[in-house]
C-alpha cells in the first residue's frame, strides 16, 4: 500500500514532537507493536523497535497497549498538530 493510501482522506500537521518513546532497555524486539500499527510507523532495527515516521500515525495507542514489555511510552502530539480527519 502506498504511503498516502494508508491515510487516505486524513491530513497530518507537522510539529508533533516525539510523542511515542520506546525504551530500548526494555524492548526485546518482538515486533508486536509493528504488527499492531495500521500506519506502518514502527520498524525493527538491530533487534529494537524504532519509530519510522509519525506522518501516518493516527494516534491510536495500539503500540502502547500491545507492548508486552511495557517499553512504549505514549502521549499526545503537541496541541494542534498530528492527524485530522474530515469524515470521521
Amino acid at each position: 500500500m502506498l504511503q498516502k493510501d494508508k491515510v487516505l482522506g486524513t491530513q497530518w500537521v507537522p510539529g508533533t514532537g516525539d510523542f511515542i518513546k520506546i525504551d530500548h532497555d526494555r524492548c526485546d524486539g518482538c515486533g508486536d507493536c509493528v504488527i499492531s500499527c495500521f500506519g506502518d510507523c514502527i520498524g525493527i532495527r538491530n533487534g529494537k523497535a524504532i519509530i519510522l515516521t509519525y506522518e501516518t500515525c493516527q494516534e491510536c495507542g495500539a503500540c502502547w497497549y500491545v507492548c508486552p514489555e511495557n517499553a512504549i511510552e505514549f502521549s499526545w502530539p503537541k496541541g494542534g498538530t498530528g492527524m485530522k480527519v474530515e469524515y470521521g
Partner: peptide, 9 residues
C-alpha cells in the same frame, strides 16, 4: 467511492 481510511481502538 472510497474517501477516507482511518482507525482507532
Amino acid at each position: 467511492k472510497l474517501r477516507t481510511r482511518m482507525w482507532r481502538p
